[in-house]
């Protein structure tokens, strides 16, 4: 993929190209592309004068980063303890069945990405599912279809 170097430059310059700001820079790059394109990682490594292996090391260590493109709609099913004891696993399985994909992958049409997350801090309403930025509490398998229908 072709990347917009000037856009990357402005992100990097915001942090004065400091090596210590690598994680913040990658977070901003990811916000721009919704994932970390390989070319962008290589460019950041060059600008910060950090070995590529170190940049890829950070990009693969943290769960916040994805090296694969994400779907237009991101469904995050919480698997935290509070949600677990209230049956989040059943909710996840229903999403997997309805979307025909396993957690951690994206539908073929690029529409949905299904992922798990360990607690989004809305534990009182478990099981919690996030549909892009929006929280949905007290989820059950039955409610899955409706949530997927919502635009």
């Amino acid at each position: 993929m072709t990347i917009d170097e000037s856009r990357l430059d402005s992100i990097i310059d915001e942090y004065n190209a400091e090596q210590g700001s690598l994680i913040s820079i990658l977070q901003d790059v990811q916000a721009e592309y919704k994932y970390l394109p390989r070319e962008a990682l290589e460019y950041v490594a060059g600008r910060l004068d950090i070995p590529r292996v170190q940049v890829f090391g950070v990009a693969t260590f943290f769960k916040a980063f994805s090296l694969k493109p994400k779907g237009r709609r991101q469904i995050h099913v919480c698997m935290g303890t509070a949600c677990h004891v209230r049956g989040s696993k059943k909710v996840l399985e229903e999403f997997e069945r309805k979307l025909g994909i396993e957690a951690g992958s994206t539908t073929k049409d690029g529409e949905y990405t299904l992922e798990t997350v360990n607690c989004v801090g809305a534990c009182a309403l478990g099981p919690v599912v996030m549909n892009n930025e929006k929280y949905h509490g007290q989820m059950t398998p039955i409610k899955v279809e409706d949530l997927l229908k919502k635009v």
Binding site: M79, G80, T81, A82, C83, N118, C119, G121, A122, C123, A124
Partner: peptide, 11 residues
């Protein structure tokens, strides 16, 4: 960082 999954005091 509030890593405990099931807690939201710090948040």
């Amino acid at each position: 960082d509030e890593g405990d999954p099931g807690a939201f005091m710090d948040r």
